[in-house]
Design a protein around this nucleic acid. Structure first.
Lengths: 250, 250
DNA sequence: CGTCTAGTTGAATTATATCAATTCACGTGG
DNA sequence: CCACGTGAATTGATATAATTCAACTAGACG
């Protein structure tokens, strides 16, 4: 469904820059950093933003690249990850619509970003954004809020990676996707995955085989159902939450 | 050296509030968020900050507590961590002098904080800080910069926890401490640990026994020396870096 | 001088990784 | 429309890194 084979290099032709967009009409603006801008400032924002379309499996940027731009995901799913020398990979997250890609601080990107599905992005020059920000303190507030949210998420994921068992990790991952789906207006009961088992494994610190085994076991136990490989129905979501939430309930 | 036995609850008497401090004379101001304030604004800051002294092994706050204050570590070492229901623990970091404790966003603390050594803290009411911030946009910039640094650190640690072997984890930890020591003006060759083997284990996702075994092996291999349990000399630091840096060198 | 805790070391266990077939889903081309 | 080929997912057998359980050692402190 999502992956279509060869991880072909994103030729320039694949990266269609579609010119300035009309932020006024943007459906996800309220969820993105652009929410910081009032109607009055939108014109300035529109002049600075470009929309880009990418195929599945194309890179957006690499770790270490000069960070001239930051991006907002408009549609589709991206994976952001760090690579080790011998090919090991740690996926840091799966940004979707409304999520920020790249950080407003620092000279170079601290992770690589690659699309999992066809993706539409808004691209903003960091230099221009900085110019804008000087006039709108609300923007830095919003960015601070976003970064704090990401930091809290990273720390929760550190707990998953450092201290949870394989079934707990898988359950945590599913519950997390479910919550995100609910936040975006879905029911959270039926998930459409846009990443492979291997990507799931690289996110929660396991191997693809172990992820597969755990999913099979969860299916046998009646906690989930997998009608198609890229679809997961959460049947007994409270049981999944219990498994995931080895966390102390505050 | 650091731990002195029972994790006694911090009685109120141990939390000595010493009143307002003179930020002007603060030696670590340049390294803390207060660096955002110019000489002119320091008076306002001084009126809002309180200095607090804590014994070793006292809690600063718990995960879930209402976050009325944020803190700056002035001296000593703190551990910040998340707990699971059954007692498992993931340590997120070991803030030292100049580091921020608690985040300027969100209603409650997302982790617990406990001192490892005697600690001096600056405490600022978040409400008052917010008032100050409205006048000084530089403060939010500084906080954004700090949060971005912490986020990058968390993501690096995710890679350690998700994808590295036990020796690589220990080496990563030692190199990280060494770099921090260098950044603070030390040589980075001789480390004074303020945390137990168990705390190290809870930070890098291992058990205390495994940490101990790896340290013994690194000693046998001549990469480090451990003259006292809480002191580690890095003998062949390049070899340690190689071991730690399974990371792709950009 | 004895007690207590942290640390180290050893032996046995186990969860997960690794290696190796199958099976499955899906797009392609006949 | 169906056979085929391809990559992903699943399943099984085995290996192994790290944990667990347990004993022992060494400082620290009363």
């Amino acid at each position: 469904m999502a992956a279509d084979g060869a991880t072909q290099r994103a030729a320039c032709g694949q990266r269609r820059v579609e010119g300035s967009s009309r932020c006024r009409d943007c459906e996800i603006r309220s969820r993105a950093f652009c929410a910081a801008f009032g109607d009055a400032e939108l014109t300035a924002l529109e002049a600075v933003i470009e929309t880009i379309s990418l195929n599945a499996n194309s890179e957006v940027f690499f770790e270490g690249d000069t960070a001239d731009y930051i991006y907002n995901v408009n549609a589709g799913t991206v994976k952001i990850f760090k690579s080790l020398q011998d090919g090991r990979c740690q996926i840091l997250g799966f940004p979707v619509e409304g999520d920020l890609l790249g950080y407003p601080v620092g000279d170079s990107h601290t992770y690589s970003a690659e699309t999992l599905t066809p993706v539409r992005l808004c691209r903003v020059s960091r230099a221009r954004l900085r110019d804008l920000a000087s006039g709108f303190p609300a923007l830095e507030s919003k960015l601070l809020e976003i970064m704090a949210g990401e930091l809290a998420g990273s720390q929760a994921q550190m707990t998953v990676l450092g201290r949870k068992s394989a079934p707990e990790r898988v359950a945590s991952f599913l519950v997390q996707l479910s919550d995100k789906s609910i936040a975006n207006g879905g029911t959270g009961a039926s998930l459409s995955l846009s990443m492979s088992r291997h990507d799931v494994a690289d996110f929660i610190g396991l191997t693809a085989e172990t992820v597969s085994r755990v999913l099979t076991q969860l299916t046998r136990d009646g906690l989930i159902a997998i009608p198609q490989p890229y679809r997961v129905d959460l049947i007994r979501i409270e049981a999944l939450r219990d498994l995931a939430a080895a966390e102390a309930s505050i």
